[in-house]
Every structure is written in structure tokens, then in C-alpha cells.
Design a protein around this nucleic acid. Structure first.
Lengths: 202, 202, 202, 202
DNA sequence: TATGAATGAGTATTCATTCAT
DNA sequence: GATGAATGAATACTCATTCAT
């Protein structure tokens, strides 16, 4: 069989094309208003082909979210914290990369899709929470605990609540820039860093 | 016309029934998955009656959002700030009432509907921004400016960004409690107050 | 009871208003596209009132046609033929009045309603045939027989066919002016008289 | 694409099936009373298939009329008139074929559909006038002018009016046989020929 | 008697999904 | 594997008709 390898690549490539076309459509039109036929057409494929790769339209949406989760998975790791760096600096440093490309990487789109369609896809909300949201919050909580241990933060703080406070500007800006005030976007980086400085009083 | 008075009451009551049934359905199922027939049935009315009050399903959704906006309109007013109260205390005090009933008053539902359906209803997003979001942010910015004038805050802060920081925990908690982690709700009040204290360093 | 008489008049007047409003609507929009509510509104009445006078929308249409048939009933009578007038002259003279106001009297509208809606209202087509179409043709046939007897026409003619030939320009013009070429109406009188002259070779 | 040929044939056949089933329904029930589902069923197809071929029920009706116009287009041509044949004979000869199959060819149905539904489909009335009615009348007028030139007719006649007179029996019979007196049909051929003889006095 | 709010049967239309080619 | 013609369940919406006032 001369090009079995190629065929596998081809398949992966076709799958990719479908997912990207579907993602565009879901972002622009939402799940309910996206038509399988239009996605197929945008992917340069026939309708039937979509169904060779995904059993149902729901499965296609799950495939898109799965893809985004895998693609954008890049968790902050508390174990990477060097001894000679403050927790605040570490968080800021680590988040610069992550936060600066939150829109271009598709992570903002993913989050907004979870916000808008999550109610109807509890399974995906669960997945997002398990793979992205909760791990991130837990790593932040670990870092906060380390900060308390190092006396960079008072022991009186509630780590769960403070983790949410660190997270809050990210969601605020995703809502602000992506839904409510698209023509005057706020700079997430500025907000995020300022917020960390306030929390760590530094 | 003798029974005109009754008739007006009756129609207002029917309209109310429709809106409340529709609201429940939109919150639970989203717009696309809500069926007009089911809403009518839940309201104890015939399908046709819905269409006597709203031309289309879209118009019904707009009616629901309009209703929520009118119902929940209760803006913070910077002019109410007493001389003998700090801006931080004023914000906290004013927001206690507002924030404590954010779920029960329907304001959280409204916000989440805007998040989930707003893309497909730009007109409603505009309305929400004009009536709720922007006025709130602007009043907060005025208060921040007063705080700067009173030297409760350094003049170096960016009032637009800081207003968003004050807002951020509210959206964070609406997302956290309403979408992602429904079984372990975070106490918005705690988060909000703590955040104000951090910002005002008090 | 002071104004029972008035009440009867009022009732007849209301009925008249309904029929005229309905007629306008049926002519302009056809039966299927005419809405009872719109007819009521055009008549300055409530929807329910229509149903006090006509059981159903179909009955309303029948009422309109009945009204037109009664209103416009003005048959040519062969017994009116004077001895000292040719049949051709008699037909022409009698039809001048009838044909000249065929549009303004509503007879053309009635005929076109029968054409356009008759298939769905066989009862009305029957009525029209019995009250208008067949009597007219039969009187014309009687006149043609008299003309044969008087040797104004050869005995070889087929009176049924010739009656239709006399009728033909009327329908031709109703179709031409009313449906196909509204902006360049043909003068029915000219056509009708010329046609009679051709048939009677005079 | 290998099966493209087959596919094209198949779709043409399906389109034909739809049009014929729709035509039957429109003739029997009229446009408003024809149900898309019933037409689909009569065509041995699913409802959705109709909508793959015609965007709306209105478009389906237009498709049917278009089809009839194309199918039945067979105009009399004045240029075909031989020198050694009278105009009257030419008209009679040419119309024998055309008129004798006016019912079986669908032309009568088409004309009656225009009569009954034309008011609601001005576009189709226009099309019918442009493609069928006006060309026919114009060719007849040309022939009448030739007849005048050849002195087969006096120059005093009005060609436009006389063309309508020639046409009149056709419409008269379509109305008579198709709407009013279906059980005693008149022989169109007899009427048409007799009428031409009267007009040409031959 | 007149009204118009309420009703729900009836219909056009959409679109995810199937499957023969 | 890829295709797109065919399908029909599902749904928004209409409007003749009823009936309480």
C-alpha cells in the first residue's frame, strides 16, 4: 500500500479543516445557528464528509471544544516556582505569555463558547472545568499557600477566594472586550498585573 | 367602554405571565432550545396568545430582556456620596443591597442571558451596555475620581481600568456560580468587599 | 320599544358595510388572502360582529356573491322585443346599458371572482350559472330563434354556439382589461357591437 | 465526476415529477388550497425534496407556470403565411392544431391558472402576457394587416379590436367548459372557425 | 348587540442525518 | 473515502373561530 501514511495525514488534515471551519462558525453564529452544510462548505467538503468524522452535530461541537482544550492546555505549575522569585513575580511572569495571547490562541473563544453554549452542553462545561478551570485555580491556590508560608501574604486570606480574585480580571476582560464593548478593548495585561500587585500589595 | 379597565389589567397580567414563563425557559434552555409552544403551555396559555403580545420569538426574547432591564434598573449614584463617608465605604454599602440579591432579583440571569445569547442579539447587548453596564462603570469612575480628589486613592490610577477591577469579581462569581461550579458557590459579597478593600488599601 | 325599526335598519346597514368591505378585500386579495380581521377593521367593526352576520368566512363569501347577484340582476328579456325592431338592434340596444356599466356595477368583479374562486366554491359557480349565465344565454338563444324565424339569420346557425359567440367579447374584455392588459383597456362596447353586426351581417 | 451524468438526469426527472404533481394540485385545488406536503406525497417524494428544488411554495408555482409557458410555446407566425392561401384559411389551419389540443396540452390549464391566481402573482401574469398573450395578438394583428393589404378585409377595421374578437371564442370556451358548464362542453373548434368565417365574411 | 382576547388546528419551512453511488 | 440528493421530524407562525364581558 503505497500511501497509507499519507492517507492518515490526509485524514488528520481533513479533520482539522472541519474543526477549524466549525470553530469559526460556532464563534460567529453560535451552535444553534451554525449549519452543518455551511461548515462543510466552508471546509471545502461535502456534507456527508463531516459525518465520516463526527457522528452528530453535537459531537462536532464536542470535537471543537476538545481540540481547543488540547491545543490551549498550558497550565501554570506551582512546582516551577523558583526559590529566589516572589510568588507575585512568578504569577505575573508566567501569565504574561498565557494572557497576552489569550485571544489569538483561541482560549478566549473557548471560554466564551463555554459561557454561551455551556448550559446546553454540561459535559463540555464539566470537561472545561476539569481540564482548565479547576487545575488553574488549584495551582493558583497552591501558589497562594506558598506565598502565605513565605509570608508574602498574610495567613488570614482565603486562598480559594483570592484565587478567584486573581482570575477575575481575565473573565472581566473577556466579557468586556468580547461581548460588551468590542470597540474599546481593555488591555488585559495591565489589568491583570495591577490586580496581582494589589493583592500582593507590592 | 365599561370593561376597558379590566381588559387593560387582564392584558398586563397575561403579558406578565408570558414574560415570566419565557424567562424561565430562556434561562434553563437558552433561546434556541426554548419552544414557543412550551412557553405558552407553561404560562397556561395557547400558542396564539403569545403572538398577540409579541410578533416573533425574537421579539419575545427582547421583551424579556427589556422587562429585566426595567425591573432591575437600580444604578449606584455618585451624587449620593455623603461628605463624611469614604468612597470605599460608600461603594461597599451601596453594593451590599445590590449584590446580595443579584441572583434573586434576576440581574444575574439577565447578565448570563446577555453573555450566552448576546452574540445573536446585538441589539440587546447594546441595550444592556447602554442601560446597565456603561452607566454603572461611569458612576464607579466618577466615584474613583472623587476618591483621587480626596486623596483616598493615588492620582496615578487609571479610573477606567480600576472600575473594571471593581466590577470583575461580580462577573467572576456569576460565571463561577452560574456556569462552572454550581455546586460550590462562592460568596460574592465576601469577594466584592475584599476586592474593594484591596483597591482602596483599607 | 322605541327604535325597533331603527335597529332593523341598523342591522341591514351593518350587513351592507360588511359585504362591501369584504367585496373590496376579495377583489383585491382574493378569498384566501383576505383576513376576516382586516375586513372587520375596514368595515369599522369588531371581528366578532362579522360572525353575528355570517357563520363562517365561506358564508361571508357566499353572502358577497349573493349580494352581487341580486344587485346586478338585470336580464335581457326576449319578450320585450318589439315587432318593429330587428333582433340585432334589440340586442345592441339592450346591452348598451348593461355592458356600459359592467365594471362600475360590480358585474365584472363578480364574474372575475367566479373565475378566480369558483373552483373552490362550486355552489357559487352553480348559483352564478343558474341566475346569470344560463338565463342570459337562454334569452339570447330565444332571440336568435326569433331572428331565424324572421329570416334575419339563416336557419343553419347553431343557436347555442352563436349565443356563446355573442357572449364571447364580454368575457374577452373582462379578461383583457381586468387581468392581462390593465393599462390599455379595450372598449367593450365597440367590440360587442361590432361582433353583433358581424354575426347578423348588418 | 463519474455519476454526474446520472445525477443530472435524476434531478431533472425529480424536478419534472414535482412540477407535474404541483400542476395537478394547483389545477384541482388552486394555489392556496394546495399543500406542499400533499404535492410531495403525490410526487412520491419527501416534503424536503420540494424545497431542494424550489425555495418557497410561491417559487414552486412560478416554476409550474414557467414550465407550462416553455412547454406550450408554439406561436402562430405571420411570416409563414403562403402567398396562395387566404389569411382566413391560414388562421384556421394554423389554429386547428393549436386549438384542438388546448386542453390536453395544458394551455387551457395554464390560462385558467393565470385567470384564477394571476391577481396574486402579477409577475406571472406579466410573463404570460409577454410570452403568450401579447405575441399571439400581435401576430394576429399582422395577419389582419396583410388581409387588409390583400383586400380580404376592409381597411376600416380596427386590427387590435378584431384580433381580440378572433381570440374571444377561445377564452369564452375556456370559461364555459372549464368553469361554468363542465358537463356540457362546447366544441371550441366549431366556434373558433365559425367566428373567423364571420369576421372574414367567407 | 358588539367586542377582541384567547385558542389551537393547520402549514410552510428548516436542517440534521442517511445512504446509494 | 467522499458526495449531495432525499428525507421527515420538529417548529415558528397564521388566522378562522369562540365566548366571556
Amino acid at each position: 500500500m503505497k500511501k497509507r501514511g499519507l492517507s492518515v495525514e490526509k485524514t488528520a488534515e481533513t479533520r482539522q479543516k472541519i474543526i477549524l471551519a466549525a470553530l469559526d462558525s460556532f464563534i460567529e453564529l453560535g451552535f444553534a445557528n451554525s449549519k452543518v452544510a455551511a461548515i462543510a462548505s466552508a471546509a471545502g467538503l461535502g456534507k456527508g464528509t463531516i459525518y465520516s468524522y463526527f457522528d452528530t452535530k453535537d459531537a462536532l461541537f464536542e470535537g471543537v471544544i476538545d481540540y481547543l482544550i488540547e491545543e490551549t492546555l498550558d497550565p501554570i505549575q506551582s512546582v516551577d516556582l523558583p526559590d529566589n522569585q516572589t510568588v507575585a513575580d512568578f504569577i505575573v511572569e508566567k501569565m504574561v505569555a498565557s494572557v497576552s495571547n489569550i485571544e489569538s490562541s483561541g482560549r478566549a473563544h473557548m471560554a466564551r463558547l463555554i459561557l454561551s453554549e455551556g448550559n446546553q452542553f454540561p459535559h463540555l462545561t464539566d470537561l472545561y472545568r476539569q481540564k482548565i478551570y479547576t487545575p488553574w485555580n488549584q495551582e493558583i491556590q497552591k501558589l497562594l499557600q506558598i506565598a502565605i508560608d513565605r509570608q508574602e501574604l498574610p495567613s488570614s486570606i482565603d486562598t480559594a477566594a483570592t484565587a478567584l480574585l486573581i482570575n477575575a480580571p481575565i473573565w472581566m476582560v473577556m466579557v468586556h472586550n468580547g461581548v460588551l464593548v468590542r470597540d474599546e478593548p481593555m488591555d488585559l495585561m495591565v489589568l491583570f498585573v495591577e490586580n496581582v500587585r494589589l493583592i500582593f500589595k507590592c
